[in-house]
Nucleic acid binder design. Structure first.
Length: 295
DNA sequence: AGGTGTCAAGCGTCC
DNA sequence: GGACGCTTGACACCT
């Protein structure tokens, strides 16, 4: 089992998600920003390797405006060597990578233009993973999308639109249950019809499910991951006390985490901790799992 | 230097 | 029909 955290490391004093305003776009600004982001990404990956945190989500902001029409600059060529070198670092340390486009990426929108923009955004994500030279265990996770007043029709549209995506996207795409609309059962339907794996999100399942227990839902999601996809990926978080339902906890609640690990039983998976203090909680989780001999 | 309004993108919910 | 939240985090302009 690998432990991971998303996008940002809070103890290094750099971030790989520097961006700028659209109106400040220039080739120079783009290259300067991407260069700085990749330098920071290297530091974060080195930190992860040294601390045995072998699962990491790369930020979608690595290349600002990458899928926007304004960006005609040849960043993939300009940074090919740097990407390849980062990829070697990842592979040599047996690290696993995921990416998670934000809520604007919706392949099931009835609006053809939103689909077109979403496909462009997914192309960018697949390109980053390809430039890193990673195998198909590196995944891109998205949600089911909007319901648009009819979930079954919208779920159909997801599956039809999926077929129109580039193969480089299709082979890396996984679908994750969300906290309000598409449950694990909905995602399993998508999986049956498209062949893509289901990424189980424990916190979303708590908030939005069809009543399945954690072990059952997780087991069904895990069964959708093929050999070439690698071990199932799982997102974990817990409720921030005294906040609106669905808001992520500031720091890991080890009692809740222990209960989750127990519920998961003997299943093998990689776990992403969606917790605000990032690597700090990931280190606590790593220590806990070392004690109970799961890693 | 520090404070704060705003940012490419969309959905659903609440008012 | 408009504001708001969503892992908001980070920029960019203001004082």
């Amino acid at each position: 089992m690998n432990i991971g955290y998303p996008c940002i490391n809070r103890s290094l004093g750099c971030t790989a998600s520097h961006t700028f305003r659209l109106r400040s776009y220039s080739s120079a600004r783009l290259f300067e920003t991407v260069r700085a982001n990749l330098l920071c990404l290297r530091r974060v990956l080195e930190f992860n390797r040294e601390n045995n945190l072998l699962f990491f989500r790369v930020t979608s902001d690595l290349v600002p405006f990458a899928s926007h029409p304004v960006c005609a600059d040849p960043w993939p060529e300009a940074f090919a060597a740097e990407f390849s070198s980062l990829g070697a670092l990842i592979k040599n340390s047996t690290m696993r990578i995921s990416m998670h486009p934000d809520q604007f990426t919706l392949i099931n929108s009835p609006d053809a233009d939103i689909f077109r923009r979403s496909a462009a955004e997914l192309n960018y994500h697949a390109l980053v993973l390809d430039l890193l030279g990673l195998d198909l265990t590196a995944k891109i996770q998205i949600h089911g999308g909007g319901v648009y007043g009819d979930k079954s029709k919208s779920l159909d549209r997801f599956c039809r639109r999926f077929e129109r995506l580039n193969k480089k996207i299709r082979r890396r795409l996984v679908v994750e249950n969300d906290d309000r609309q598409y449950t694990v059962a909905d995602c399993l339907q998508i999986s049956r019809r498209t062949g893509i794996p289901v990424l189980f999100d424990s916190f979303h399942h708590q908030l939005n499910s069809n009543g399945e227990d954690v072990a059952g839902a997780m087991g069904m999601a895990a069964a959708t991951w093929g050999k070439r996809d690698g071990p199932p990926m799982v997102d974990y978080s817990s409720q921030k006390k005294g906040e609106r339902s669905g808001s992520h906890t500031e720091s890991i609640d080890l009692r809740d985490f222990a209960a989750f690990i127990t519920a998961a039983g003997s299943l093998d998976f990689d776990i992403m901790l969606e917790i605000k203090d990032k690597e700090k909680s990931a280190l606590l989780a790593r220590n806990f799992l070392a004690k109970v001999k799961r890693i």
